[in-house]
């Protein structure tokens, strides 16, 4: 098979969807073209890798979202904007009706009024009267404030003094209690400490006496055995010296005997005259 199989056929081969005869033809082609065979093996490899991309678990929603198409023209931004503006104006008008709002523009004055119009009081008030009324009201208010301030300061000072006294008494009582408790606690602590120390010292001395006794006993036993050993070694030493003396005395005796023997032999071998003359 010299003609290259098309991609569709190669895919069919990859997915095992070819007939036996077609498969054989593709295999023949792949034997003749190892690079194509390698490429197809790569695609199979890719398919294997794709299997590792597992499905994600998902919770099925109990209620699906509303069908968007049912909303219709509300989705158009211009319509939504216009409806929004109209609704706002309507709301404002309703509010104005409820609060009985009246807006009036006359002789460069804009006035707004809610509810029933108030009747003007009879007569007119001059500027001086108005000023005097305001000053009087302000002074009265100032005096009232001063009085209130004085009253408040007196109350506050007396309360402060009372609180301070209470605080001092409380603090003193607490300090006394604290010191008393501390003293008692400290006494108990020292007493306990002394007892403990006495116990520790007694125990220590008792233990030390036992230890010392044992140590001295061991020491005396060691000294006695040391003396025995020393005596034994001295004995062996003197014995060896005696043996050496005996050996050396024996050697000297042998030498003396040899010398004497040699003299005797010499004397015996001399001629008789010489011997006589000499004597």
């Amino acid at each position: 098979m010299s003609d290259r199989p098309n991609e569709a056929m190669l895919i069919d081969y990859l997915y095992g969807e070819l007939s036996t005869a077609e498969s054989a033809r593709v295999e023949q082609y792949l034997r003749e073209h190892p690079e194509e065979k390698a490429k197809l093996a790569g695609l199979a490899d890719t398919r294997t890798l794709l299997t590792t991309y597992a499905d994600k678990e998902v919770i099925v929603p109990t209620v699906l979202e509303k069908d968007k198409k049912r909303v219709g023209s509300l989705q158009v931004p211009l319509v939504r904007w216009t409806l929004g503006v109209a609704a706002s104006i309507g709301l404002l008008l309703l509010l104005a009706y409820i609060v009985d709002l009246k807006i009036e523009l006359s002789s460069n004055e804009l006035s707004m009024q809610f509810g029933e119009q108030q009747e003007q009081p009879p007569g007119t008030v001059t500027m001086e009267q108005l000023q005097a009324t305001i000053s009087g009201a302000l002074e009265a208010n100032y005096e009232k404030q001063e009085q209130l301030m004085h009253t408040f300061r007196d109350e506050w000072e007396s309360k402060q003094a009372e609180d301070e006294k209470k605080y001092k008494d409380g603090l003193q009582k607490w300090a006394e209690n604290y010191l008393r408790d501390q003293k008692v606690g400290l006494g108990k602590y020292i007493e306990g400490l002394e007892q403990n120390q006495q116990q520790v010292i007694d125990t220590y001395f008792a233990h030390a006496a036992i230890q010392q006794q044992a140590y001295m006993k061991d020491l005396l036993m060691d000294f006695a055995s040391y003396m025995d050993e020393q005596r034994k070694q001295d004995k062996e030493f003197y014995l060896n010296r005696l043996i050496d003396l005996k050996i050396s005395s024996d050697i000297r005796q042998q030498e003396t005997e040899q010398v004497l023997t040699s003299i005797i032999n010499t004397v015996n071998n001399l001629p008789s005259e010489t011997t006589t003359q000499n004597f």
Binding site: N6, D12, G42, L43, T46
Partner: peptide, 15 residues
């Protein structure tokens, strides 16, 4: 055939 061709080139690209 178009499907198979797309699959072939898709897998090749992934490869």
């Amino acid at each position: 055939n178009t499907v198979k061709s797309r699959l072939y080139y898709g897998l090749s690209h992934l490869r």
